[in-house]
């Protein structure tokens, strides 16, 4: 289930099928063991226009393996047997539309998936999707952007379930040197309308950035940095991701140790 027990909690993204689905399963379980609180299962799409080069490359590799949305749902069912952490499907609209929105929601519920985020599906187009997702008790997660007007943030907050995904800055996914002021401002604006937990994503790649997010949001999303770790550690992907997740979340362990000591 979707829960954010840590400060901040870690939402970890992987592109499923990179390098192959069996390895993705091992990577996800290793990430959970190492401290990930929610997993975003990325379904590769041929035209990932919201993604930077790292996830573009991973998507190409996953598509060469023939990875499909249906296979990712099946993978989620396998992961669910082994773990109770939150599982989110993260993809673009067309593969979902092709499968059929109702069919997707039914299958996702059957697999124990908690929710979905479709990058190129803004609220205005989400009528059927919202109905089917609600019917299956699946969380609809929407993006909120620094460019979103207050009016839009209000609607986004009203229709989001599970959490709201705050985009840290204008741009595509991928590492940034600095976490911009945009992120903190956006979260402050969102709080006026959203009672849900807020996860900040896009560009978070270091333990320092992840810790900084904890000062103003419930969770940080780390994607490209994990995918790049997978890309750079052929043959030992699960171990490498576990190590990276431990580094990211190390300060949380220190904090709880300090608290326990007091």
């Amino acid at each position: 289930m979707l829960a954010f027990p840590q400060k901040p909690s870690l939402v970890a993204y992987v592109t499923c099928g990179d390098p192959d689905l069996a390895t993705t399963r091992e990577i996800v379980l290793a990430a959970i063991d190492a401290g990930a609180d929610v997993i975003e299962l990325g379904v590769p799409f041929s035209d990932p226009l919201a993604d930077g080069p790292v996830i573009q490359r991973a998507s190409e590799r996953a598509l060469r393996q023939g990875t499909t949305l249906e296979q990712v749902i099946e993978l989620a069912a396998q992961i669910r047997k082994a773990s109770q952490v939150g599982l989110i499907v993260f993809t673009y609209l067309n593969p979902v539309m092709r499968l059929g929105v109702a069919k997707f929601c039914a299958a996702a519920q059957g697999a124990g998936i908690d929710g979905a985020l479709l990058t190129d599906m803004p609220l205005e187009e989400a009528g059927e999707y919202l109905r089917e997702m609600r019917r299956r008790d699946l969380a609809t997660i929407f993006l909120a952007a620094p460019t979103s007007t207050n009016e839009r943030l209000k609607h986004i907050a009203a229709e989001s379930r599970g959490f709201v995904y705050a985009v840290s800055r204008t741009g595509v996914t991928g590492a940034r040197k600095q976490l911009p002021d945009d992120a903190r401002n956006l979260v402050q604006r969102l709080r006026k309308y959203a009672k849900l937990p807020i996860a900040v994503g896009f560009g978070i790649s270091t333990p320092e950035q992840f810790a900084a997010v904890g000062e103003f949001a419930e969770a940080g999303v780390v994607g490209s940095a994990i995918v790049e770790t997978i890309e750079r550690n052929r043959g030992r992907e699960p171990e490498a991701v576990a190590q990276f997740v431990k580094q990211l979340t190390a300060h949380r362990a220190q904090q709880s140790a300090r608290k326990a000591g007091r």
Binding site: L49, A50, L93, T119, D120, M121, P122, E124, E125, G127, E128, F142, L143, A144, A145, P146, T147, S148, T149, R152, I156, V167, T170, G171
Partner: peptide, 28 residues
């Protein structure tokens, strides 16, 4: 679902086709 009923009278829709499917950052 709504657009299909109102056809081409809805701005940005041509029957069921058209619309605005982009990441939130571009909506404004």
């Amino acid at each position: 679902s709504k657009a299909s009923k109102t056809a081409a009278t809805v701005p940005g829709r041509f029957g069921v086709y058209g619309g605005r499917y982009v990441p939130e950052t571009l909506m404004a």
